[in-house]
Write a protein that binds this DNA or RNA. Sequence first.
RNA 1: GCGAAAGUGGCGGAACUGGUAGACGCGCUGGACUUAGAAUCCAGUGGGGAAACCCGUGAGGGUUCGAGUCCCUCCUUUCGCACCA
Length: 884
Amino acid sequence: MEEHYDPAAVERAAQAYWEEHRSFEVKEEKGREKYYCLSMLPYPSGRLHMGHVRNYTIGDVLARFMRMQGRNVLQPMGWDAFGLPAENAAMSNGVPPARWTRQNIGHMRAQLKSLGFGIDWSREVATCDPSYYRWNQWLFLRMLERGIAYRKTGVVNWDPVDQTVLANEQVIEGRGWRTGAPVEKREIPTYYLNITRYTEELLRDLERLPGWPERVRLMQANWIGRSEGCEISFPYAPDTHAAMSAAGALKVFTTRADTLFGVTFMAIAAEHPVALAAAAFNPALAAFIDECRRGSVMEADVATQEKKGMRTGLHVLHPFTGKPIELWVANYVLMGYGEGAVMGVPGHDERDFEFALRNSLPIVTVVRSPSGAYDEVRAPWIADYGDYGVTVNSQEFSGLEFRAAVDAIAAALEERGLGKKRVQYRLRDWGISRQRYWGCPIPLIHCEACGEVPVPDEQLPVLLPEDLVPDGSGNPLAKSAAFYECTCPRCGRSARRETDTMDTFVDSSWYYMRYACPDQDRAMVDERAAYWLPVDQYIGGIEHAVLHLLYARFWTKVMRDVGLLRLDEPFTNLLTQGMVLNHVYSQTAVDGRRRYFNPTDVRSRRDASGTEVFETTLPSGETIRLDNLGLGKMSKSENNGVDPEGLIKRFGADTARLFTMFASPPEQTLEWSDEGVQGASRFIRRLWVAVYGHVKRGPAVRLEVDSLNDAQRGLRRAAHHTLAKAADDIGRRRSFNTAIAASMELLNTVGRFDDLSDLGRAVRQEALEIITLVLSPIVPHIAHELWRALGHRRAVVDEPWPAVDSSALVQDSVEFVVQVNGKLRGRVRVAPGAEEALIREAALADEHVMKFVGGKAAIKRVIVVPGRQIVNIVASPPAGGQDG
RNA sequence: GCGAAAGUGGCGGAACUGGUAGACGCGCUGGACUUAGAAUCCAGUGGGGAAACCCGUGAGGGUUCGAGUCCCUCCUUUCGCACCA
């Protein structure tokens, strides 16, 4: 063992050992318990960022820990290789997305290897590889056969200058990111996957996922958004009926049928067919609908915009009173949810209330809140809008409590054929068409004679050409005759290939199944998937809580129903890691634009008044003062990223891993701190020095447990206590930071232990071995070397997790905390397992404690909690005493 | 706007089941070593107070023998919102 720790050499040697021994390549072993540890696959953006380091370190720690527990551990890795950034890169430097992507993969793979992750690289998958995406296409065709995939129109962001569809991300404050032109909504044909067919199962099965964070299950449940209510038909008024060619009634869905008599207007979405029909003979309305088309399709934009509306001039009739109700077009009604129409009840809905005020519409109160806040004289809307209560002013339905009112109204509606109870979901079908180049082609052919024709299975995959370079205006595939010109598989005449590609969420919906059998070229998955799945532990960012995880669950259920595997849910346990944050510093230029400076280039000092100021020195030599904008997610746009590669070069991978695991619990945000990294590095060096100091004195003798003195027993108790705590922290609580803290404490204890006798050295040997084993999943390289130095021939990577010697944990006495009226007043020591009466007696015998008690007679109660080693004396304080 | 979380010393965090608030680390202060600095080591470190003690977990209320933890109201920050991945 070298005297001085050289991380580069240590890490090179450990990684070479794992590579040579193929330590992480795994095979299916019937009868051996498997553990599938999966981290969300990265997008190959070019370089690893700290979020990746954190994600994959968590995964690696769990994988290595479970391996020590004897499980057959699979930890694979792949690349989410299709997507927008490759096209953007292509536009700025003229390199085709395929080449850019593959170069990035090469670099990032090397970076991952330098971090020492125990990955089975023989199973690597890249989603842009035809051997992968052909199965997207294959399953899409199965979905088409089953009616799960279908075509309808969808709304997209349209850049009128570039004549191209924009992703939400490419819309900045309502304008196209490249052209600056105001974005419009546009309807285009789109392929959808019928995820709503699985709504109820997706909702119900959340209960079968106890290994998922509660908040993720809640978010998914809210996203699916089950609500019970009524569908109500408002017949068109005679004038309207004549004007509209469509017969019948306007349908709405409401969860508040009890407020039906409070309806003072009806509002429909701008895209509603009735709105469009009405606009045909109303130019002002047509102009308003056009105005509603402005802006992006993002829900956050739509929901926060100013609530605007316009009369259509048409009317519908109240289903009970028959009174005509004005029909409005409103920009806050979403076509995609429910019926694209809402009944306006300004007395009991905040949005409707705002709308009514703005447009001087009547406000009628029809529910009396139980809190009594209802006041007919005062403005009734001062009361809670959402309050449930007893109906008033509702004809024969007055005087009913919410549920009874809804039941009665629904029954009466049903009798008249004007409505019924219905369950409504918020979840919409999944639109997967993208007018983009760098994605998986949708395997369809459009033939003038035969219509939409699926590409026959034997012609799969529909290969994506890899030599195109997008220019920002439309999809290059649609301009590439070599791609879109084809013959109809049905009639043989010339036809046009579909040029839309699939949403990249399709790629990430099943990659974890492909890892089980990446070389299978005759089927999407084979029986090896049955061995490895479900994933035992999935780790990834909280930002994927809804979309990716919901789509993957849906995709799994479709694969099950197609007969590919018997699996209802793909991920048994889920860990959602927090983001990595760093300070954000900027300077606002004269034109109002912010310039961001990387925190590594920023210095802080106190100015004359003692306030902290932040400065940086420009290349010109000029020093400028910066604004401290606090903490933000590490990002390119705010220039506050930390490059893992530099960190590894300077401190080593083990330090990077240790810091990310120690700085905060995995589910919380992690704040970057250079000092924290140095602290982690310092600890690793102290560990090295401790082991070096120990082994240079030669091998320790065998540990004789029965011959130990008090101090030796004390160190041994600390070591086994740490071991037990670390197993629980890592294995059950996923609380890596406290496991590390416990190891630090143990090393501190070893440092204070100066017994150099044979037995003392034997106890120290055991303690150092425990620290090494406990930390080996977290800092595997140094552990590899220390374990060798401690005299072991087998590599630490193949060692099992050690067993706790429970006899080492036995204590001679236990301390009880004594409280008086809940305040700490003293401590007493008693024998382990002492009777309650004895503990109580000891507590009452404590002089200091009794100073806070007004004599024995003042004691009202004594509560002894043996499990918590606490005694609480409830008593009145001494007269004029100190317990003021 | 809707949905979900989080607020504890100077800082990151610990306190797992309602039971000793501040483990561990950073920073800071003092000391040792050193020609000097860096590194390292030792000691101290929530606030107030000479002390006894008192106060203290975003704010305000409540439940309890006992609340950082449970309940209610509010404030602040972060994330997601269906075409970023």
